[in-house]
C-alpha cells in the first residue's frame, strides 16, 4: 500500500502523482519503472518513474488516462492508497558525457524523459529537448525540462504553441544544424518509430524507451517481448531502453494491440 501525497492535472487527461515509496525513491535511477496495481481485481501496469525525492521518500508518476486501469489510478485522491507498487524495475539509462544529446519526448513521454534530461545535463552534455504534442494544452512539464536543457524546441501538430509540426520535424532541424551525438526518444510507439527512422537516416545513435504490455515486470512472463536486432528481448529486464535502430517497431505496434 502506497499513500498518494499529492495529485495535479498537467492536462485534461494527464495526472501527476507524488506517491509515498521510500525504498523505491532511494534505489531508483533515471530510466527505471514501477508496476502498479489498483484494487484487488486490478491489473499490473508499468509506469516509468518521473522523479523521486529521497528526503520525503516519494516518487512521481505521470499517468495518462487512456484505459480502465489508468482511469482507476487517476480516480485516486491524495490520502488514498495505491494497492500495490513494486520497483524500481528495468535497467537504468546509460548516462555519460556523449557531447550533444537530443531528447525527443512526445505527449506523456516527456515525464519519464525528465530524469534522463536531468542526468544527461549533470553528466556534462549539451542537452536539446524537443517536446511534442497534438496541441498546446498537452505540452507538459515544460518548465522542469527547461531547467536542465540548453535549448527547448516545442512542436505542436496544430501550431497552437511553439512550431507547427511533428516531433521529427523538430529533431531534424537540430540534426541539420549541428552535430548530434545521441538521441533519446520516449513517447507513443509510432512516434518513436518515426524518430528512429529519421535519426537512422542521419546515422545518429538513438535510444528508445519502450512501454509494452507487461504482467509481472520481472522477466517471468515474456508478455513484453520485442525483437531487437533479430533477437527476442524482454523489455522488463533487458530494457526498457534499446538501440532504436535495431527495434522492430512494426512488431511492437502490432503486439501493443493484443488485447484491443
Amino acid at each position: 500500500m502506497n499513500k498518494i501525497i499529492s495529485k495535479e492535472y498537467l492536462s485534461e487527461k494527464v495526472v501527476r502523482f507524488e506517491v509515498e515509496a521510500p525504498l523505491i525513491a532511494r534505489s531508483r535511477k533515471a530510466g527505471h519503472f514501477v508496476i502498479v496495481r489498483v484494487g484487488k481485481k486490478g491489473e499490473r501496469v508499468p509506469y516509468t518513474i518521473a522523479s523521486a525525492d529521497t528526503k520525503k521518500g516519494t516518487i512521481t508518476l505521470v499517468v495518462q488516462r487512456v484505459g480502465k486501469s489508468s482511469e482507476k489510478l487517476c480516480s485516486l485522491e491524495p490520502g488514498e492508497y495505491i494497492t500495490d507498487m513494486v520497483g524500481p524495475l528495468g535497467k537504468a539509462t546509460h548516462i555519460e558525457n556523449f557531447g550533444t544529446v537530443v531528447c525527443a519526448g512526445g505527449g506523456v513521454g516527456v515525464a519519464p524523459m525528465l530524469p534522463i534530461i536531468e542526468a544527461m545535463k549533470n553528466a556534462g552534455n549539451r542537452v536539446i529537448s524537443v517536446l511534442a504534442a497534438r496541441t498546446k494544452e498537452l505540452i507538459i512539464l515544460e518548465e522542469q525540462v527547461r531547467q536542465f536543457s540548453d535549448e527547448v524546441v516545442i512542436m505542436t501538430d496544430d501550431g497552437s504553441y511553439g512550431e507547427k509540426g511533428l516531433v521529427t520535424d523538430g529533431v531534424e532541424k537540430v540534426i541539420q544544424r549541428e552535430k548530434v551525438d545521441l538521441c533519446v526518444t520516449i513517447g507513443p510507439a509510432i512516434m518513436m518509430k518515426f524518430v528512429s527512422k529519421l535519426t537512422g537516416k542521419y546515422n545518429v545513435p538513438t535510444v528508445a524507451s519502450l512501454n509494452t504490455i507487461m504482467v509481472d515486470g520481472t522477466g517471468m512472463c515474456g508478455a513484453c517481448r520485442v525483437t531487437v536486432d533479430g533477437k527476442t528481448k524482454f523489455v522488463c529486464i533487458d530494457g526498457p531502453e534499446f538501440d532504436a535502430h535495431k527495434v522492430d517497431f512494426d512488431e511492437m505496434l502490432m503486439r501493443l494491440k493484443a488485447y484491443n
Binding site: 517471468m220 512472463c221 515474456g222 508478455a223 512488431e251 502490432m254 503486439r255 493484443a258
Partner: peptide, 13 residues
C-alpha cells in the same frame, strides 16, 4: 511473437 502466442508463465500468471 505473433499475438496469441505466449509463454506458459504468462498464461498461467
Amino acid at each position: 511473437n505473433l499475438i496469441g502466442i505466449m509463454s506458459c508463465n504468462e498464461y498461467l500468471t
